[in-house]
Design a protein around this nucleic acid. Structure first.
Lengths: 229, 229
DNA sequence: AGAAATTTAGACACTCTTGTCTAATTCGTC
DNA sequence: GACGAATTAGACAAGAGTGTCTAAATTTCT
């Protein structure tokens, strides 16, 4: 625990713990109560800190809110890119691998705490903070969707899929994987593992009926072996 | 989209006109500001009515909110069922007819004022009024989805489609038709006609790649002609 | 026109929330 | 143990919003 602590710049450890606790609690409360419905006392109580500490850390309610959204966007993006990196570029069993990928995407990025909170905050307050959520749009969907599309393009190029427009296919893949979870999402619920698996399975099957090829494996794997570097 | 809610300058005349104006304005404001963020004065001003009149009509803020949600649910359901009744049971051009149906669904039920407001209110306040939104769930998706599924089942039975589980297919149809509108919906925007058409076209094409049959038309239309009353 | 009902503006008490301030206390470090 | 920074509880003023009340004005019905 001994880094060279210059007392002005680097705050002590308890400080950071409290900061994190505030972020956690604020996300929870803003998400549950909406910005207007949330109050600082509630957040303070849930974070286990005094109200004044929140003002010390973040200045005011609005700055706190902005910090939360930025934080969530960042963490969600990290999760999405981490998950994208597990995309099955050289699938052994295309259906099974895509289903597993879809499940990972859902569990790690969409159904988890951060994903749920960010989604709710965007839906609830998006219109009130245009520039903040424009930023999310650029950093989030604007970057992740093309990344997924690129993976599908590669899979198509390797002969596993028959796709004309990878961007469209990527969006449809996600839409299909979530098709059966929409109502639950709407009401703020968290689908069970079973529901996620079901939806992903049905979604991927339909996706492959639309974009799959008969027997791509043998030929295609040569291609992808060359292409992948 | 003719809601003649002229603001403060021209107050609506008559008891019923005022009631309607209040409902309109309250939907607008609750949707824009969330329940906690909305205030009665704002609604009164937007409705062109005095604050007291709102209290006379609805008792308190919460009762007003509940009335709004009930009203929106009812109107949306009516719209959805009306649109479902235009489902192409005996399509001339399956792709074109399904695209047109998807566009109607979007424009009349999902992108229109009521659809947008109801969606937003459910997302924003769903967790706070479990019984109210459980009611929506039963009356809304609980009734409309099976109705759409039944139409797809009929279409499959008539030989136009190759569907195992009509319920799954129906949900996937809707998910595909909206696949490219998700981000816009998230931020509370209204997609342009062009975007709706694009998304529907791509969605239906993929849907038909998955569930379509080669050349069902000739044979199938006999079937459906016999089956149809 | 007259009576009944509705609507209106404004004032009002009450509650809740924000953000500040202060003085006491705790925490981490030396 | 001592020092300084961070945290705490509590009080506080200022502002906003709810829901009630009243008396006057307006509309609607007869």
């Amino acid at each position: 625990m001994k880094h060279d602590v210059s007392p002005d710049t680097i705050p002590p450890r308890g400080h950071e713990a409290k900061r994190a606790s505030i972020m956690d609690a604020a996300g929870e409360v803003f998400c549950r109560e909406s910005f207007a419905g949330a109050n600082i006392d509630m957040i303070a109580a849930e974070a286990g800190v005094s109200r004044q500490t929140i003002y010390n850390h973040h200045g005011d309610k609005e700055k706190l809110f902005v910090a939360i959204v930025r934080d969530l966007t960042e963490r969600c993006n990290a999760g999405i890119f981490a998950t994208i990196s597990t995309f099955p570029d050289q699938p052994k069993n295309l259906e099974a691998d895509l289903i597993a990928f879809a499940v990972r995407m859902n569990r790690n990025c969409i159904c988890n705490r951060d994903g749920k909170f960010l989604r709710k905050l965007i839906q609830t307050e998006g219109e009130r903070y245009p520039e903040l959520f424009a930023e999310w749009r650029e950093q989030g969907p604007g970057r992740t969707w093309p990344a997924i599309a690129a993976r599908f393009a590669r899979l198509a190029h390797a002969g596993f899929l028959d796709i004309e427009d990878p961007d469209v296919a990527a969006r449809q893949f996600l839409a299909l994987a979530n098709a059966e979870l929409q109502t639950t999402f709407m009401l703020g619920g968290t689908p069970t593992n079973d529901e996620v698996l079901q939806s992903a399975t049905h979604g991927v099957r339909t996706f492959l009926r639309a974009f799959g090829k008969g027997q791509p494996a043998a030929d295609a794997q040569k291609h992808s072996a060359l292409a992948g570097g």
